[in-house]
Design a protein around this nucleic acid. Sequence first.
RNA 1: GGCCCCGUAGCUCAAUUGGAUAGAGCACCUGACUACGGAUCAGGAGGUUAAAGGUUCGAGUCCUUUCGGAGUCACCA
Length: 637
Amino acid sequence: MGIPEKKKLSSSKTASIVDLIQSAVIAAIQELYGETIPAEQAAPTVTRKEFEGDYTIVTFPFTRFAKKKPGEIAEELGAHLVKNVPQLTRFNVVQGFLNLVVADSFWSDFLLQIADNQDFGRAPKNGQKVMIEFCSPNTNKPLHLGHVRNILLGWSCSQICEAAGYEVKKVQVINDRGIAICKSMLAWQKFGDGATPESTGTKSDHFVGDYYVLFEQKFQEEYKAWQAGAGQQVLGEKRKADQSDEQFFKDFKNTYFNEYSQLGGEAREMLLAWEAGDPATKALWQRMNQWVYDGFEETFVKLGVSFDKYYYESETYLLGKDIVEQGLASGVFYKKDDGSVWADLTDAKLDHKVVMRSDGTSVYITQDLGTAQMRYQDFGTEKMVYVVADEQNYHFQVLFEILKRLGEPYAAGLHHLSYGMVDLPTGKMKSREGTVVDADDLIAEVIEEAREASKERGEIAELTKAEQEDILRKIGLAALKFHIIKVTPQKRMVFDPKESVDLQGQTGPHIQYAYVRIKSVLRKASDLGFRIADFGLGGAGTVELPISIEPQERELIAQLYRFPAAVQTAAANYDPSEIANYCYDLAKAFHRFFTDLSILKAETEEAKAFRLQLCAAVANVLKTGMGLLGIEMPDRM
RNA sequence: GGCCCCGUAGCUCAAUUGGAUAGAGCACCUGACUACGGAUCAGGAGGUUAAAGGUUCGAGUCCUUUCGGAGUCACCA
């Protein structure tokens, strides 16, 4: 699925230097050796830093038909290219690697074109629509670190797709029904004594979560009492001799909940009442869920994310039955004697999968089948991305396979953006052991860390309180977000809270600092009477460009040049970490440039103008790039 | 046990999709402008890419086996 997209990609870019070289190589090989080579073999790669050059062609594959040594081919090819492509000034050959040097004028022309283009890197609309589902919480507990990774991936992915030219719909599915929320409801009803988030001053989703925890506590207490009394006989029969209390409870918990527990019985009654549409139960359910939504919304705002549409499982959990009928008719599904309906996916190595119970009710995957159809009707998106943890890999393989067999029109555009779970240095996050990292706590913590660091520096002390708070929020969140997004989604990651608040090194604030340095220089330049417009391309005071470019400048410009392609591949791979790493590399290159070369005290007026242009362009790309990750840039810090 | 994913410096992560001497940051050591912001920069040390075979001009990347770790295999969601 990813391969055709990549091909489409390179053909859609027009007149880029990369394409220019590529087609020139194909033509040259044809001319020199009479062989037509596939485009991949002519694709230039970026030259490694330790060699002179901008792009490299690997000549080893050509030995087969050229009947020459790689080095000789490289020499011939290099000479031919430099002669025929005006943008190439010279070349050198190392082993079989042909390093091509792009003319300074090409780079400086390019820089002038983008220096004041705020939209550089954003592609025009491509007419395609993509839906991205992310977050998808339960309503019985507040958001935690796992949700944070999910939300950041989903959000940045949506921003990247938008920049790549797609129309994006951001949706989430909220699991608002089932036994879990009934537990919170019951606990509140029995022990809440009419308390509300307002009356207790608790953030409303935490308020509801606290009752879920309370239920579990009371349930445990009830079990302990039962264990010592009425349950002794049952336990004597079921418990194996070598099992510890804890081990046994783990296995036995569900049975106890369903068959013996008073609280469990009441919770199940509540669920039945809910399903029967009992008004009082519905009202309570409505009220408590609303508290949760209000709390979630606060967290979303803090994280700077929003959604276009919310789907509620209470409204979708019955969907999908007509799909089952449809699949039975077309032979995608089959019916067993007991009336249950199955999909046979053994030829796709996915085994048999039930899609409808023998009592005619739907299962989880049936609901997903129905929801997919419903969304397609809602938005007509030919691509749908599900941002869901990798523990559901199998589920999505099955879901997509079935949709494909059903011949759904969007089936080819389905993608599971699977991401690894977040581990803590102490191991896995476990709610039972209290080792979950709460999203709100985490956000507060990183902002505090930014405050401490800022206090020592004293750079923003003279700003108003509100301005300071805004900056600290941007810095703290940049640290947190970048720390999470920079990791390839697919990989499981270790989250060390100490490292997440680091402000130095490979971090969000390090990149923000590059931006702040630029803003500071530009302010100073403006104070000295310089205005970008005065030395811009075609401006009244156009300054002639320097003929030669310093290596640090060259590296920066070449880096800027890659930005649009980076956006496109990040979108094609649904991988925000590529943008994160791009931004870091760019910031790093800028810091080096900044310390090595003087800007306002440059050797000539031309060099000064050129470098200011470069600064403006870098600031622009940093702001756009980090914006794609949901990270804001402060002007000072 | 079947299927699937992962294993790179002490730690956290890269590696332009098969290319050159495997790179960054943290931590450790050394150094830098009376300069546009030191949340910076330069340098040092740190690697048998879990192991062994194979494919080829070339393998961290592809294939096979082994070891280690995670996930999943409900008429739960």
